[in-house]
Design a protein around this nucleic acid. Structure first.
Length: 763
DNA sequence: CTTATCACTTAGAATCTGATAT
DNA sequence: ATATCAGATTCTAAGTGATAAG
């Protein structure tokens, strides 16, 4: 498929993920009666360790001998391990400082384990990441009361020169900001200048707080509530058992939620119907309850038709009406869509409270169809600073609470009734508070890059450990690193769909094949991950991993945990010891970003046309999306849109042949007449051919891109996993405008990267 | 330790919008 | 002008991981 264009990099080529396997809708896949009750779990472990005494195979015995469960061996771990690590690291450094790595070197290759370490030895990060040094993190050296944008933090020499020009204006900044803030609400002039300044605010050139506080001043208008329910016009019918029935407003409202989803597959699902019906009944009057006893006898069709007509009517609205609507929205946005945080007006991400409706859980969710209740002001907790103008609850209501907690970033929260979890209103990704965190995330991943070889040889050693828990940890980490699996927290059973990540993999999720086709030691993964997206992959592993997996599987039932002595908390604790700030998810970020960087190097030809370069970029992006298993349902209009494109290509092709003929005849003309005029015509026609060729090329690129992208979602990795500076640098290197790869929203989110990355940026 | 809670990031689908084709 | 479509935007569910509580 797409990403593999002859690169030998293991992240990209690892395994053979069936690209056609996406959503797993079948129920069989999920075992319903998987009871993970703790008692059973525990007893299993103890019996496990007993069982392990009688053996079948010789080499297994040997394996077993080496591995004792931690119960008896927790104290006999190798004491000298840390020292070893240190030594190794030193050695690596020495080597690497002399061996200049060729640019091409794969940064994360497993294929050839680190004979020579290749990381550049530039340890001092060029900006002080707060996560970096825990020690300094929580001390706040400048005084609480004054928020002064200070000069840019100490920078590494090589970077500083290019940043220098930009931060000379500290003082100016400082003066402008308060003024600007006051001016805010005023007329055109104030607004305009404010806008420009705000857009240009370079928070990344300012100091970050080093205590735990997230802000010093926060003022906002509170949330926008869902519009109140408007009862249906009398003519809209609801029929029960063939007879018209007028529902009470509360029951009717919930019925409309169902009616609006009638065309959706959800409403055919047993679980959905059951949950909906149960919650619906609770909204009914006693009479309704006694009359309505069977959901199957309910006819929502007329209601459904009514809503369809409504949305149709909305589409048919006149331009003026639409315009008016738009302005209305804009007004709400201006009023509620922004807040003031530390002297800057910032965009809020989701300022509207989620309207009531039926819960749409993904995959086989036990709660799908339940009523998501309406949120009232009394449910709302407001967070803002004490000295701000507090948001007002709607007339006649009050907030649940107003608090002033600057250790958190949210402005509004409420508790949702399906899972009992808390929902938040937070800032937009373009905000300082999100941007800083994002930047920091990539810096942590870059620190991982510097020590990943050490870590890798560490976990390889651990495959041989005497302790079961350490072996499990090491194999799990190998999967997380090599396959970019998620950590896999435990989930409460019965509350959510049955999905897993690495640490929560069960025996039934893998199959071992000591021989498969022409490969040895193949592990076949088949499980549902986040959002119930299927992960299917066959991947050859090292013999030692394979043997370990066999060991982990011994005496277990399909529904038992593969890594019974491991969970995310243990794993992350371990990772934290290996590197400050390291957690399982950092590997995903690291591997995604490093893969993009490599792929871009490999796939981009400097002499390619612009569309070809864009295709290369998308292919690099796609390689990452495949690695991270970011799938999507093929768009409903996919086939059609491919056809449309093909039609265009055909057209262009015939245009091209026409144009070519014209060149020929023009040439003939010129030969005959030899005059200037005909010569000009030849040139003109040639140009036309060239232009059409280019256009054709572009269309073909587009078609290829789209085809390859049929069920792969690029957005998630682009937005969450790829260090934007890699992309910015790539654009600069090949003289491609940033707009070609980032749309407006993305440019806003990545403003920091666009501003700071130069063409030589290395992740 | 285990479990619960909280805050925050990551995720695909649904919906909207505005450009382009008819 | 209107319909269609693709890309942008919104929506909110579902993860991760830190920390508090038991």
């Amino acid at each position: 498929m797409s990403g593999d264009h002859g690169h030998k990099d293991s992240q990209v080529n690892s395994g053979s993920k069936a690209s056609d396997s996406h959503k797993h809708k079948d129920k069989e896949h999920r075992h319903k009666d998987h009871k993970k009750d703790k008692e059973r779990e525990k007893s299993k472990h103890s019996s496990n360790s007993q069982h392990r005494e009688h053996s079948e195979k010789k080499h297994k015995d040997k394996e077993r001998e080496k591995v004792k469960h931690s119960v008896d061996s927790s104290s006999d771990k190798h004491r000298d391990k840390p020292r070893e690590d240190k030594e190794r690291r030193k050695e690596d450094k020495i080597k690497s400082s002399h061996v200049d790595k060729p640019k091409k070197e794969k940064e994360n290759g497993y294929a050839n384990p680190p004979a020579v370490k290749s990381e550049p030895d530039e340890d001092n990060g060029f900006y002080p990441s707060p996560k970096h040094h825990k020690s300094s993190k929580r001390e706040y050296d400048d005084e609480e009361f004054e928020y002064k944008p200070k000069k840019v933090k100490t920078e590494n020499d090589k970077k500083s020169k290019k940043r220098k020009q930009e931060y000379d204006d500290d003082n100016e900044d400082e003066d402008i900001k308060p003024k600007k803030k006051i001016k805010d609400k005023r007329g055109a002039d104030g607004k305009k200048s404010k806008k420009e300044e705000e857009e240009k605010w370079k928070w990344w050139e300012e100091e970050r707080a080093t205590d735990g506080s997230k802000w010093r001043f926060l003022e906002h208008k509170g949330p926008v509530f869902a519009p109140a329910y408007e009862p249906l016009p009398a003519k809209v019918r609801f029929d029960y058992d063939g007879k018209h029935m007028k529902l009470s407003p509360p029951a009717e409202e919930v019925a409309t939620f169902f009616a609006k989803m009638l065309d959706h597959e959800y409403t055919t699902k047993e679980m959905f119907r059951k949950n909906f019906y149960k919650d619906w009944r609770r909204e009914m009057t006693p009479e309704e309850k006694s009359k309505i006893t069977d959901l199957n006898k309910c006819n929502f069709n007329d209601m459904s038709e009514y809503f369809k007509a409504q949305s149709e009517a909305r589409k048919q609205m006149s331009k003026e009406e639409k315009q008016k609507n738009k302005e209305e929205n804009e007004k709400v946005l201006q009023e509620y869509g922004f807040c003031v945080m530390d002297n800057h007006k910032e965009r809020i991400g989701n300022f509207r409270i989620e309207p009531p409706g039926l819960f749409r859980g993904r995959g086989d969710h036990p709660k799908m169809g339940m009523l998501k209740r309406r949120i009232r002001p009394e449910d709302i907790i407001i967070n803002c600073s004490k000295d701000s103008k507090h948001p007002k609850p709607p007339p006649g209501t009050r907030w649940k609470e107003v608090r002033h907690d600057n250790k958190v970033t949210w402005l509004v929260s409420w508790t949702e009734n399906i899972q009992g979890s808390i929902k938040y209103i937070m800032l937009n990704p373009s905000s300082r508070i999100k941007g800083e965190k994002d930047w920091q995330k990539y810096e942590t991943a870059r620190r991982l890059k510097k020590c990943v070889d050490r870590l890798r040889s560490g976990y390889r050693d651990d495959w041989k450990s005497k302790e079961m828990r350490i072996r499990q940890r090491a194999v799990a980490l190998y999967f997380i690193d090599k396959l970019a699996l998620r950590a896999g927290n435990e989930k409460e059973e019965g509350e959510t769909a049955d999905t897993v990540g690495c640490c929560s993999l069960r025996v039934e999720h893998i199959n071992l094949h000591s021989k498969m086709d022409d490969q040895e030691y193949v592990v076949e993964f088949d499980f549902l991950g986040k959002d119930s997206i299927r992960y299917y992959n066959k991947i050859p592993v090292e013999k030692r991993v394979f043997k370990n997996l066999q060991l982990f599987l011994e005496n277990k039932q399909p529904e038992d945990d593969l890594f019974d002595r491991l969970n995310t908390s243990i794993l992350n604790k371990h990772l934290q010891e290996l590197m400050d700030g390291l957690t399982a998810k950092v590997f995903r970020t690291y591997n995604a970003s490093i893969t993009l960087q490599q792929q871009l190097k490999e796939l981009t030809c400097p002499e390619d046309s612009l569309p070809a370069k864009i295709l290369s970029y998308n292919r690099a992006n796609r390689a990452v999306a495949i690695l991270c298993n970011h799938q999507r349902a093929p768009p409903k209009t996919f086939e059609k849109s491919m056809q449309n494109l093909q039609t265009k290509i055909d057209e262009k092709q015939s245009q091209l042949s026409v144009a070519r003929k014209q060149v020929k005849s023009a040439k003939a003309d010129h030969k005959a007449s030899h005059d200037d005029r005909s010569k000009k015509t030849v040139e003109l026609k040639r140009k036309a051919v060239q232009r059409i060729e280019e256009q054709l090329m572009k269309l073909q690129m587009q078609a290829t891109d789209r085809e390859e992208n049929k069920q792969i979602a690029l957005g998630t990795s682009k937005l969450n996993y790829l260090d934007p500076r890699i992309s910015v640098a790539w654009c600069k290197k090949y003289d491609i405008t940033i707009e070609k790869i980032y749309n407006k929203t993305q440019r806003e989110k990545f403003a920091w990267a666009i501003d700071m990355a130069e063409l030589d940026y290395e992740f």
